[in-house]
Design a protein around this nucleic acid. Sequence first.
RNA 1: GCUCCGGUAGUGUAGUCCGGCCAAGCAUAUCGGCCUUUCGAGCCGACGACCCGGGUCCAAAUCCCGGCCGGAGCACCA
Length: 502
Amino acid sequence: MSEIVKRDFPELLATKARDEEKRLPDLPNVEKGGVVMRMAPSPSGPLHIGHARMAILNDEYLRRYGGKLILRIEDTNPANIELDAYQMIQEDLRWLGVNFTDLVIQSKRFDLYYSEMKKLIEAGNAYVATTPTEEFKSNKQRGLPIRERDETPEENLERWEKMVSGGYEKGEVYAVVKTDLNHPNPAIRDFIAFRVIDTPHPLEGDKYRAYPMMNFSVAVDDHYLGLTHVIRGKDHIANTEKQKYIFGYRDWKLPYYLHYGKVSIEHTILKTSLIKKGIRSGEFSGWDDPKLGTLVAFKKRGFDPLAIRKYYVESGIGSVDTTFSWEIFYSFNRKIIDSRSPRHFFVNQPVSLKFDFEGTLRADIPLFPQTSQSGEHRNRSYTVGKGTIIITSQDHQKFDGELVRLKDLGFFKIESSRIEYIGASINEDVQKWNPNKPLGKVPIIHWLSGNEIPFKVTKPDGSEDTGMIERDAVNYLGTVHQFERYGYVNVLNEKEGYFTHP
RNA sequence: GCUCCGGUAGUGUAGUCCGGCCAAGCAUAUCGGCCUUUCGAGCCGACGACCCGGGUCCAAAUCCCGGCCGGAGCACCA
């Protein structure tokens, strides 16, 4: 049976394979009401292509199961907060098509963190220490307690109250959640849950001095927000182990944890601190500079957010570390935008050729070759006569002395700084110039003649291509064009565009 | 150093939990062909992988052991 299919109907097999969309695996323990999940970025800057994996994965499962997807902004480190980021993160998510159902800001929840910590101390599951941290660390390495660990809850509670009310200076005190001093992994042994910070919080000012550490606030919030599933990067595996101790002390039901592998993204800049520095120094034009891996930069380069979604859905949730494949990502984006991208000629590094010709030639070039999809049938129409014809210097060097076809205009012969018309279609004249090659092999190149304006394309590596573009292109500003034989470019205004991808 | 985790074509993945339908699927890239008017598009085809070595088994990408390689964590960051 399958042999017959293979032999007589190979197209059936091909079609079937192509239609199989890759699907994320199902989540375990999903109940009737759906899932409750969260995305937990820190507001240090806008989201980048690395964050997008976390957002897409969570959103895909929300779409499948229904329920809640909480955006929880983790702003418990005032040194690392960019005030604009609270807003930028939400805009980035909207652009990605990720619909969070709730917004939670951790700096509004200090009272909850304080009362929860107090309960842990009262139960003897946490302590407050003034022992130098060097001793705390070295004792942990050897599996030994520091003095305060063995003191009574009352003594620790006293220090806790003093810590919360501002009775200690920065660096003088810290609060610790007990785990297991003999845990085989030293990284899991007793961890710091609170510290004193005296730099003002951008939202809360100097209202609080005792700040929770991520492992503490995350555990408390994951419980009180009712999370059923936590999907995050595997750099959090050790954190999950620590957080589980708090769940255990309070007898809370654990969410289901899933840790995906690290994606390293080459040839782009993601680190917020570097971006901020570069913006200040003028190296980057802003958060959306084309050299950056931020989502706003992706938007400005003309990527469709669906390409990002497809990329991460196809990557799955495996725990293997991977390298982001620009090639594959570009291909996904190309398939999405190709049919809606108007075609135009951009002549990079232009060369003007003298054209002596009696009479005029007419070119009618489709703007959207795939009219069935775009619904637009318009042509760019030009008349060409005596004067100059512009082609790229690259084509000029390559085809000097040879027959070429200027796309949608006709056959021409290039003779150093001149160009000569041979004919509109394949005829005797054309064949005469093309004795050794099959007729279909005449190279087709793009051109301009009397319809050009200067244009600049900025590439993601920061380099620029300058040349001439069809005047018609400015009728389609703010959209991605296919510059024929060059690549896709988001045309920002009449003078310049950002290179999207080949 | 300690504790974990992982290694499928150039790249991204499916399959690994519950061994046989996997002489390993898909995508992307590359190469070739088709297309008298774009292309890095489309269509067709080719190329190309189970980290290494043992073991268990009728049968191993899948289970076990060892090795090698890679990654993560060991912050008063998240």
